[in-house]
């Protein structure tokens, strides 16, 4: 890795490490999605009356009938759908929200703290600067997402074994999401923050603009639950491909169009 990129990346991580309140706020969502929610749903799975009552939501099960494994029996199907499909797009919110906070505080934060001019005076190129900032936001976001997914998976497989009579986590959709889709969508979210960073003065404004990214994810969850759109493997592949193309275009556009003069004069 280029020394400038590595230096930027290391400095950013060091700054995150020093900021304990930031770390605490970053870990809240993974804790909720990775530990609290599955614990609640799994404990409901041990409640026979709950499982029997879920059979009434049969239209939802119908939409997933083609992708639910045959050995998942009738009254656990709905729990399987919730844990393996409804939660799937929800986990995309973790890297997006974490990277959103890190990238806005790292890029717009340089403007806010008046450190950007010093940085732009160094021999670093625009590409190195943007790439270093992206990396320093992507890596912790993805790592935290993977860890929360890992804990989520352990909880499901250990406590869900008695419910489903088999290990159900991970399936191909989760693996693809963790390795390909989540990094892609995280990079896109970070690049959006970088795009707007020259127009906003505070990291909070950058965050509020970039948070719109969460809305499509919520829309996915709703459409998935209503059966309008199933977030299956083909959907993931298609989405990843589209986002990859958008990411390349945005990266090229950001690095060639960063105007140091505009950045400085807008301070």
């Amino acid at each position: 890795m280029n020394i400038h990129i590595k230096t930027i990346y290391k400095k950013e991580l060091l700054e995150i490490k020093q900021d304990k309140p930031l770390i605490a706020s970053l870990l809240a969502l993974p804790l909720i999605l990775g530990v609290i929610f599955p614990t609640i749903f799994l404990s409901l799975g041990y409640d026979k009356s709950f499982l029997l009552s879920t059979e009434k939501i049969s239209p939802m099960i119908k939409h997933f009938s083609s992708i639910i494994p045959n050995d998942i029996n009738g009254h656990t199907e709905i729990l399987y759908i919730i844990l393996m499909y409804i939660f799937l797009p929800l986990f995309l919110i973790i890297p997006i929200s974490i990277s959103n906070v890190i990238s806005s505080s790292s890029f717009v934060g340089e403007k806010e703290n008046k450190t950007i001019e010093g940085l732009l005076n160094t021999p670093i190129t625009n590409k190195e600067l943007v790439f270093g900032k992206i990396l320093s936001s992507v890596i912790p976001s993805i790592l935290i997402t993977w860890i929360s997914m890992f804990i989520y998976g352990i909880l499901i497989d250990v406590f869900g074994f008695n419910i489903f009579n088999k290990i159900i986590f991970p399936n191909f959709e989760w693996i693809f999401m963790a390795l390909i889709l989540a990094p892609m969508i995280t990079i896109l979210s970070i690049q959006l923050v970088i795009c707007i960073s020259s127009r906003v003065k505070t990291s909070k404004s950058a965050q509020s603009v970039a948070i719109v990214f969460i809305f499509p994810i919520v829309a996915f969850v709703i459409s998935q639950a209503s059966g309008l759109l199933i977030f299956g493997i083909w959907m993931e592949i298609l989405l990843s491909f589209i986002i990859l193309i958008i990411n390349i275009i945005i990266f090229y556009s950001i690095t060639t169009k960063i105007d140091r003069e505009k950045l400085i004069l807008n301070l």
Binding site: I3, H4, K11, Q18, K114, T115, I116, E117, G118, P123
Partner: peptide, 26 residues
């Protein structure tokens, strides 16, 4: 080499700030 009214990285130590700068200059 430029010293102006730009700020240092407040969360980092003096040593970390200087190391970061040294590395940026290779």
């Amino acid at each position: 080499g430029i010293q102006n009214d730009c700020s240092l990285y407040e969360k980092l130590t003096v040593n970390q700030n200087l190391k970061f700068w040294g590395k940026l200059y290779g």
